[in-house]
Simulated scan of single mutants.
Amino acid sequence: MVNIVYLVIAYKNLEQMIRLVNRLNAPNVQFLIHIDKKTDEDYLTGAQQALRDYPNCYFIKRETVYWGAWGLTQVSLNAIHYIEAHDLKCDFLIYMSGQDYPLQSNDRIHAFFENHQGKQFLDHFTLPYEHWPGRGGLNRVELYHFQLGSKTLVYPPFAGRDSPPRLLKPIMPFFSFKPRKLPGGYRFYGGSAAIILARSGITYIDQFVKTDLGQRIVNFYTRTTNADEMFFQTVMMNSSLGNTVVNDELRFTDWSKKAAHPEILTKHDYQRLKDSGHLFARKFDVQVDAEILDLLDEGSD
C-alpha cells in the first residue's frame, strides 16, 4: 500500500484540525503538524494533548507565517527535510491546510495515489499569467519585497502601480532599478500552494536547496510575495523531473468572487463538491457551517 504523509498547517479552529486528522488517519499514513508560531500556546497544547495517542503524528518546527510572506514556503521545506532526515516511509507528501477536507474515502485516496506512483501534482502556469494582478504576477517576482512583521515594503516604491503619486513623479527616475531575473536562467512559474510531491520530488528539492544554485533561488524568493504559490512550481518545472509533474492540485476550490482568498464552502455546495470528482477541497470553517463536513463524511462511506 502507498505511504502518505500529510502536512497539516493549522492556526485556528482546533477541533476542525483534529477532525481532519481523524478523518485522514489510516494505515500507512503519517502526519506532520505545523502550528503557526503566532498562534496561542493553548492551541499547541490542545493539539498535542488531542493527538498524544497518535504515534504517526509529528509536530515540526514552528515558523511565523504571515500571508504573502516566505514563512509558509519555509514550512513546506521544513516538512520535506523532516521526511528525508528521519527517513519516513513516504511515497507522497500532501499539503493540507487546517481548512481542507477530503471528498473521497481513504481507500479511494490511497488507490488513486497507488495508481500514480512517481507523479507530482502541482497546479502550474508560466508567468505572466492573465488571471494574476500586477502585470500577470510579474510584480511578485521582479520587484523587491521586504517583510517587516505583517507589513511588506516594495522596492522601488510605487513601481507596481500604473501611475505613482504626482508629488513623487519628479524623483522616480532616481530610483535605480532593473527587473529581477531568476538565477540559473530559470523561468518563472506560479500556481497553487497546495502541493503534492512524490518521493522523487521530495528528495530532489531537499538536495537542491543545499546547492549553490538552490540557495540563490531560495534567497531570490525570500524577497518576493506569495512565494508559496511560485517556489515549488519554479523549482520542479525547471528540473529534470518536470515531465513527472501533473498540472492538477486534486482539490476543489471556489474562486468565483476573485478575492484574495477562496470562498467558504457550506452544505449548499455539497452536490457540486461530490460531482467535482476531486480528492480534496477547501476551504471549510466550522464556525460558519459544520454540517457540510458531516455530509461529506456520510457521503464518503
Rank of each mutant, 00 (worst) to 15 (best):
I18C: 09
I18F: 08
I18H: 07
R19G: 10
R19F: 13
R19E: 13
R19P: 07
R19W: 13
L20Q: 11
V21E: 12
V21Q: 13
N22W: 15
N22G: 14
N22L: 15
R23K: 15
R23M: 13
R23Q: 13
L24N: 12
L24R: 14
N25V: 09
A26Y: 15
A26D: 15
P27Y: 12
P27K: 15
P27R: 15
P27T: 12
V29D: 14
Q30Y: 10
Q30I: 03
F31N: 06
F31R: 12
F31G: 09
F31A: 08
L32H: 04
L32F: 03
L32S: 08
L32N: 05
I33C: 10
H34T: 01
H34I: 02
I35R: 08
D36E: 04
D36A: 03
D36R: 04
K37A: 09
T39H: 05
T39S: 07
T39E: 06
D40Q: 08
D40P: 09
D42F: 14
L44F: 08
G46I: 01
G46C: 02
G46F: 01
A47L: 05
A47M: 10
A47E: 02
A47T: 01
Q48N: 05
Q48C: 07
Q49Y: 11
Q49N: 15
A50T: 01
R52G: 08
R52C: 10
R52T: 07
R52K: 13
D53R: 12
D53K: 11
Y54S: 07
Y54I: 05
P55I: 03
N56H: 14
C57P: 06
Y58V: 11
Y58H: 15
Y58S: 14
Y58Q: 12
F59D: 08
F59L: 03
I60E: 03
I60F: 08
I60S: 04
K61Q: 10
K61T: 09
R62M: 01
R62D: 01
E63A: 10
E63W: 10
E63L: 11
T64H: 06
V65R: 03
Y66N: 07
Y66T: 02
Y66A: 03
Y66F: 07
Y66M: 01
W67P: 03
W67S: 05
W67K: 07
W67Y: 08
G68R: 06
G68S: 09
G68V: 02
G68W: 02
G68P: 04
G68N: 01
A69R: 14
A69C: 12
W70K: 12
W70G: 08
G71P: 05
L72A: 14
T73Y: 07
T73A: 14
T73Q: 10
V75K: 02
V75F: 01
S76M: 13
S76C: 13
S76F: 11
N78D: 05
N78G: 09
N78Q: 06
N78P: 04
A79D: 02
A79T: 06
I80Q: 01
H81N: 12
H81S: 10
Y82P: 01
Y82N: 04
I83C: 00
I83L: 00
I83N: 00
E84L: 05
